[in-house]
Design a protein around this nucleic acid. Structure first.
Length: 713
DNA sequence: GACCTGCTGCGGCGTG
C-alpha cells in the first residue's frame, strides 16, 4: 500500500485539493512509520522539503480528536514560526474539524480562555509559555495536557546543546510525568547531519530505544563564489559595496554580515548606492534590535514580493524557518562561527524545487578568508559540530526547583526529590547534590519551610513573580528609539548615544534629538548621513574543527577554483609566510613564530580551548595577549621560550582548577552572571557552571597532551 | 569587534 493510501480520507482530500503530484521522499518515509508505530521520530530534511507535513499528515490521520483534552502539542523556538505554522496547520485541520490554538505571549487572550473552556485539538506553544503555565496555572497543565498523544518539536537542533534545550527537556519530562499514557515525540530539523549526533538526539526525546531517525540526504545544489575585499573594522571597502550592489540589484537576496552594526552599514550603504543609480529601494535590515513591527513588515514584504526584488541584511534572526518565501542568493560577509549556522543560511536560498543557486562568501581580511575557506570545505564534507553535552545542569535545576515549588501549594522534601529523580534531565546530578542546592536555596530565602512543607521564600517570590522568570537567558535593557511616535528599534547605551549624533537603524539614517535617561528612550529625526551603531556584545565562540581545518588549508598546496584572484593571492601570501614551519601532523603540531624578540603562538584551536589555554598561562604567570580572530597568543618581550612551551603536556587536577576559579569568583562574583540561574547556586556548583560555559578543559588537556610547538627555521 | 531566543497578571483607559 502506498503511503498516500494509508492516510485518512480527509487528509487524502486535502492532498488532492492541494493538487500535489506526489508526496515528498521524507513524507513517504514518515507516513507508514508514524501510523504504524508509537515510536519517537526525528525527521531530518532540508528547508522547504515538507517536514511539517511529514509529521502532521500521519499524526492527524492517526490521532482521535474526539477525546477530551489537547491531543497534539507543537513546540517552537520562535513566536514568528508559530504564527507561520498556525496558518499551515489550520488549513489542514479544516478538513478534520480540529481546533488549532496559538499559545504564546502575543497570542489572543480570548483564544486561550476558549481553549481552557474546551480543551481540545492542537496547541502551538513556546517553551517559555509552557513554563509560565507550569508556574502560574499548574491546574491548566493537567486540564489541557494530561492526555497528549504527540508532541512535535520544530527546529529541534536549535535546542540541542543549549541551556534553553535542557530547560525544554525538563518540561517534556514533567509533561510525561502527568500523562498516564506515554505520548510520542516527533522532532523536526534541517541541521542534524552527523551520525554522531544521533545518540544525543535520541536521549533528548527521552526514549532512546524507541526513537528512530528519518533522514533525507539529497544534497542541495549550491555554488560557492569567494570575493576578497580588504576593509577596516570601522567600514567596509567601497569596492566590496559596489560589487555586492551588483549581486543585489536584480535578485531576491539575504546578506549575513555577522554583527548588527555591520548589518545596518550594509543595508544603508547599498540603499544609497541604489538610490544614486536609480535602482530599487527595497533594502532592509533585520536583527534583534530592529523594532518588532518593522521586522514583521520586512518578512511580509519578502513573502509577498512576486516580481519585485529585495535585499535583507540580517543576523541569525533569519536563520531559522520563518517563511520569507523564495530567496535567489545568499551572501555571507566574513566567516560563520560554526558549520551548523552556515547550513541554515545556505538553506535559505534556492527554495524553488531543483534550482541551484549561489552562495557568495565575501572576506574583509586574510584570517577571515582562511576561516571562510575552512567553513566551505567542511560544509562540502557534510561536517557538523558535535552537540555540547551538559551532564550536570545545576543552573537549570535551580530554576526547575523554584518552578516546581511555585507550581505546587507547598510540598514535602520527599515529593520534591521524587519529582527531580523522575526527571531524566537531572539523571547525573546526585540526590546529595540536589539536597545541597535545596539547603542553599533555603539559606538565601528562595525557599522556606512551612511546617514540613517547602514554599517559595521572601527573596524567591520577587524572582519567581517577575516576568523574567520563564526563560533561561538574560536580555540586556536597551534604549527604545522612536521618531515622532513611530517605533524604530533599540540601542544599547554607548558613548555614541548623545544628542546630534547620527546613526543607522532599521536601514535608515537618524539624528539623535533627545536622550531620555530616566525612561531609557531616544527620540530621533531622519538624517542624510551617519555611522553604524555600536552594539556591545559577546559574539559567538568559533568551533575547534574549523580552526583545525584552517591550519590544513594553510599547509596544503591545493588551488581552489572557487577563490577570486585576490583571494588566491592572499592565500598564497599566507602560505608563503607559514612555509617557514615544517609541519607534518595537523592534529598535534602548531606554529610558534620566533623573531626579533617577538613570540607568537598560533594555536589553531576553538575559542573555548583557547580560553582554557589562557587560563593556564595566567596560572603559570606567563603574560600574553590573545587574538581570537587569528587564534593566536603573543608574549611580552623577554619572555623565555620555555615559558611558552610550559603548557605542553600540562595538566591540572580538577581541584586545582576549582581553586583558581573559586578565587576568581571571590574577587569578582559577577563572573557567574554568564548563567542567569547559576547566580543562586552554592559556590562549588557555580564553579562547575563556569567551567562548562566559559572553558573546555577536557578538550584543552587532550589538545595539550600531544601538542608540539614547531618553531620557524 | 563580536548572535539569537520569550514573557504573567493586573490596573487603567477607551469603546460598545
Amino acid at each position: 500500500m502506498t503511503a498516500f493510501n494509508l492516510l485518512s480520507e480527509p487528509i487524502r482530500k486535502y492532498i488532492r485539493d492541494q493538487r500535489w503530484e506526489s508526496l515528498r521522499k521524507i513524507q513517504e518515509a514518515s507516513i507508514p512509520r508514524i501510523l504504524g508505530t508509537d515510536n519517537n521520530y526525528v525527521i531530518i530534511s532540508k528547508t522547504a522539503s515538507g517536514k511539517t507535513e511529514a509529521a502532521f499528515l500521519p499524526i492527524l490521520s492517526k490521532v482521535n480528536f474526539k477525546e477530551r483534552g489537547v491531543k497534539v502539542l507543537y513546540i517552537s523556538p520562535l513566536i514568528a514560526l508559530i504564527n507561520d505554522q498556525f496558518l499551515r496547520v489550520e488549513k489542514l485541520c479544516e478538513y478534520l474539524d480540529v481546533k488549532v490554538t496559538k499559545w504564546h505571549g502575543e497570542a489572543s487572550k480570548a483564544q486561550k480562555d476558549h481553549l481552557i473552556k474546551n480543551p481540545e485539538g492542537i496547541v502551538l506553544i513556546t517553551p517559555e509559555s509552557l513554563e509560565a503555565m507550569f508556574v502560574n496555572r499548574p491546574q491548566n497543565i493537567h486540564h489541557l495536557f494530561s492526555s497528549l498523544d504527540y508532541i512535535v518539536i520544530d527546529e529541534i537542533h536549535s535546542f540541542l546543546g543549549s541551556e534553553r534545550g535542557i530547560h525544554l527537556k525538563s518540561l517534556l519530562n514533567r509533561l510525561q510525568q502527568i500523562n498516564s499514557n506515554r505520548f510520542s515525540v516527533v522532532g523536526l530539523s534541517a541541521t542534524v547531519s552527523d551520525v554522531n549526533q544521533y545518540a544525543e538526539l535520541k536521549d533528548y526525546l527521552g526514549n532512546s530505544e524507541n526513537t528512530m531517525i528519518l533522514r533525507d540526504t539529497t544534497p542541495k545544489p549550491i555554488n560557492a563564489l569567494f570575493k576578497y575585499f580588504p576593509g577596516s573594522v570601522e567600514e567596509l571597502s567601497l569596492d566590496l559595496l559596489k560589487d555586492l550592489y551588483v549581486r543585489t540589484r536584480d535578485s531576491k537576496i539575504l546578506v549575513f554580515p555577522n554583527a548588527r552594526g555591520r548589518v545596518e552599514e550594509v543595508a544603508v550603504k547599498l540603499k544609497k548606492i541604489s538610490e544614486r543609480v536609480g535602482g530599487h529601494q527595497n533594502y532592509f535590515s533585520h536583527h534583534s534590535s530592529v523594532d518588532k513591527e518593522v521586522r514583521e513588515y520586512v518578512e511580509f514584504f519578502a513573502k509577498s514580493a512576486k516580481d519585485e526584488n529585495f535585499c535583507i541584511s540580517c543576523t541569525s534572526t533569519l536563520e531559522l524557518g520563518i517563511d520569507i518565501g523564495n530567496v535567489d542568493e545568499v551572501v555571507q560577509i566574513d566567516a560563520t562561527h560554526s558549520i551548523a549556522s552556515l547550513i541554515q543560511r545556505v538553506g535559505r536560498s534556492g527554495r524553488r524545487e531543483g534550482k541551484s543557486s549561489n552562495l557568495y562568501l565575501y572576506s574583509t581580511d586574510r584570517w577571515s578568508l582562511l576561516q571562510s575557506i575552512a567553513c566551505w570545505l567542511l560544509y562540502s564534507e557534510q561536517y557538523i559540530e558535535p552537540i555540547q553535552i551538559t551532564e550536570k545542569p545545576y543552573d537549570v535545576l535551580v530554576h526547575q526547583i523554584l518552578s516546581i515549588v511555585k507550581g505546587s501549594s507547598g510540598l514535602y522534601l520527599n515529593e520534591l526529590l521524587t519529582k527531580i529523580a523522575g526527571n531524566s534531565t537531572f539523571n547525573h546530578i546526585t540526590e546529595e547534590e540536589v539536597r545541597e542546592i535545596i539547603v542553599h536555596l533555603q539559606e538565601i530565602d528562595f525557599l522556606e519551610k512551612l511546617g514540613h512543607e517547602y514554599i517559595i521564600g521572601v527573596e524567591g517570590e520577587i524572582v519567581v513573580n517577575h516576568k523574567d522568570f520563564y526563560s533561561m537567558f538574560h536580555t540586556p535593557t536597551f534604549f527604545k528609539v522612536s521618531s515622532q511616535g513611530v517605533k524604530i528599534g533599540e540601542l544599547p547605551l554607548s558613548p555614541q548615544i548623545k544628542e546630534d549624533e547620527n546613526i543607522f537603524l532599521s536601514a535608515k539614517i537618524w539624528k539623535i534629538k533627545y536622550v531620555d535617561f530616566e525612561m531609557n528612550k531616544i527620540e530621533v529625526l531622519p538624517a542624510r548621513d551617519g555611522k553604524k551603531p555600536i552594539f556591545l556584545s559577546d559574539g559567538a565562540d568559533s568551533a575547534h574543527r574549523i580552526r583545525e581545518k584552517m591550519l590544513e588549508v594553510l599547509f596544503s598546496n591545493v588551488q581552489y577554483e572557487f577563490l577570486d584572484k585576490d583571494g588566491q593571492l592572499i592565500l598564497d601570501d599566507m602560505r608563503t609566510e607559514f612555509a617557514v614551519f615544517s609541519l607534518n601532523n595537523f592534529g598535534s603540531e602548531r606554529p610558534l613564530m620566533n623573531s626579533n624578540d617577538n613570540l607568537e603562538l598560533f594555536s589553531f584551536a576553538g575559542s573555548k580551548i583557547n580560553k582554557s589555554i589562557g587560563f593556564i598561562y595566567d596560572y603559570l604567570g606567563v603574560e600574553y595577549n590573545y587574538f581570537d580572530h587569528q587564534s593566536s597568543f603573543t608574549f611580552k618581550q623577554n619572555t623565555e621560550i620555555n615559558s611558552v612551551h610550559s603548557i605542553i603536556s600540562f595538566n591540572m587536577s580538577d581541584s586545582q582548577i576549582n581553586d583558581v576559579i573559586r578565587k576568581h569568583l571571590e574577587l569578582n562574583p559577577k563572573l557567574i552572571n554568564v548563567s542567569k540561574w547559576g547566580t543562586y547556586l552554592p559556590l562549588k556548583f557555580q564553579i562547575e557552571i563556569l567551567k562548562k560555559i566559559e572553558y573546555d578543559f577536557e578538550g584543552c588537556f587532550n589538545f595539550l597532551r600531544n601538542l608540539k610547538l614547531v618553531e620557524n627555521n
